Simulated scan of single mutants.
Amino acid sequence: MFSRTQWRRVVQSLNRCHSIAFSKRYLLYTNLGISISLSMVGDTIEQSYERYVGEIDGWNRMRTFRMGIGGFTVGFVCHFWYQYLDYRYPTRSIGTVMRKILLDQVICSPFYITVFFITMGLLERQSWEEFQAEVMEKAVVLYMAEWTVWPAAQFINFFLIKPRYRVFYDNSMSLGYDIYTSKVKYRKKPSLESPEA
């Protein structure tokens, strides 16, 4: 059992870590670490489900690693995008929040989905034709899913959450979306071959 003094020391240590991690000096690193970690967790959860239903045989570590790098690029974009929005629109009025949501959906969402597919295409050494085909098939699916989830989530983010916690909140909310992104990215095309007679 911890004594009251030991609990106080633990809480003080956690507060110190929190203050450092979310300080201006280290916020980018914190946001990138969160984005990488949760992208990898999302892919691991999706692969666990795919193994459970028999779609894959084992855990593809390279796939999870690539999703983590995808999380890095998306986290980088989100970090600076939120800083720009908060600088350009510093108030928390309903009108300002709605403007931020619209800009986020119309500008940032397509941009970071594109950055994600470019990152994955480079890591997977896709040809230009393969990249184009994948974006045409899958990016629209992800973008439409964004419109079902993020306007409400971003209302909370822009209206209630302090700016330094925006990417943390975004990533916490997006764990389910990261699972879905992994599913869409790695879903197999249905076979065009006719079954044997």
Rank of each mutant, 00 (worst) to 15 (best):
F2P: 00
S3C: 07
R4M: 13
R9K: 11
V11E: 04
Q12M: 11
S13R: 10
R16C: 12
S19K: 11
I20H: 07
K24I: 08
K24H: 07
R25H: 07
L27G: 00
L27Y: 01
T30R: 00
I36E: 00
I36Y: 00
S39G: 10
S39N: 08
D43G: 06
D43R: 02
D43C: 09
T44P: 03
S48V: 11
Y49F: 14
E50Q: 14
Y52Q: 12
G54C: 13
I56K: 06
D57Y: 14
W59H: 11
W59V: 14
N60C: 12
R63N: 06
R63W: 03
T64Q: 08
M67N: 01
M67D: 00
I69A: 09
G71I: 02
G71Q: 03
F72R: 04
V74Y: 02
V74C: 08
G75R: 00
G75C: 08
V77L: 14
Y84F: 15
Y87Q: 11
R88W: 11
R92M: 14
R92V: 13
G95L: 15
T96K: 05
M98H: 07
K100S: 02
K100R: 11
L102P: 01
L103T: 02
D104T: 04
Q105V: 06
Q105W: 06
P110Q: 03
Y112V: 06
I113K: 00
T114Q: 06
V115I: 14
I118V: 12
T119G: 02
E129Q: 10
E130Y: 05
F131E: 00
Q132K: 12
A133D: 09
E134S: 07
E134G: 04
M136P: 01
E137H: 07
A139D: 04
V140F: 12
V140A: 13
V140Y: 10
V140P: 01
V141Y: 02
L142A: 02
Y143Q: 07
M144Y: 09
M144H: 10
E146L: 06
Q154N: 10
Q154T: 03
N157G: 05
F158H: 00
F159Q: 08
F159M: 15
I161N: 00
K162V: 12
P163W: 03
R164W: 06
Y165Q: 03
R166S: 04
Y169W: 09
S172V: 15
S172I: 14
M173V: 13
M173L: 14
S174I: 04
L175R: 03
D178Q: 12
Y180F: 15
Y180Q: 04
V184K: 01
K189C: 15
K189M: 15
E193Q: 13
E196H: 13
